[in-house]
Amino acid sequence: MRWINRRPSPGARLALASLPFAAVLIAYTVGSLSRLAANANDKLLPGLAGFADALNRMAVIPDARTGDILLWADTLASLIRLFSGLGIATAIALVLGMLIGMLPSVRALLSPFVAALSMVPPLALLPILFIAMGLGEVSKIALIVIGVTPVMIRDLAFKASELPREQIIKAETLGGNSWQIALRVMLPQVLPRLITCLRLQLGPAWLFLIAAEAISSDSGLGYRIFLVRRYLAMDVIFPYVVWITLIAVATDWALERLRLAVFPWSAAEGKA
């Protein structure tokens, strides 16, 4: 049988899927054990005991100085920034994307501008944001918004303009005005795409969040990683990275569930 026709059974699929994860874990353990054998105080690849100790310090025992449990305080601070940024970006992208995709005059006005804006490297704007908005929460949220909004606007405008012309004409023959067509025909078909688009922007949003936190912050997951870097505290950095990854994967999964639950007709959209 040709390789292109061989399909793994469900059990084999699960085994195959866990293989890369297991490989990484094993490689790490082997490396860690060999380094620890050479030097029991090695900080680069700490062993399980090291992680347990660090997790205990970060996630269970309150910090001696502030009285907060650091992991939770950092997570809360980061998630507030992340979701404020994504929320604002989503709202702007939905309104502008629909307008650009639907109304030829708005498209003429804004489409080239948004295209140009989406090419500005957001991190290059970070100093400007810090200077203009200070070092507080606003500039960090603004960075996320600036980073993901133009891409989302373009994606949604594309989706809106991609709707078959026949559907719009059809809605007109059913007596719809522009507003109703936006509300009843375009919006429901753009919303599933908005969720997919949001999923795809989770990665960039985290990138901008951690970049902003690394440079100036007093809490947050990115802040903590860059703070403990000074002490080569890999026992803290590794769990933080895994934790961030888990949050991102869970958000991605939850958004996909949400889309299928709210828009059951859009099952094919997820393949995008």
Binding site: P188, Q189, F263
Partner: peptide, 14 residues
Amino acid sequence: RGVVYQKYSVFPHL
């Protein structure tokens, strides 16, 4: 004036 096309005549989300 009503219309029926070969494709895309009905709304997939309804």
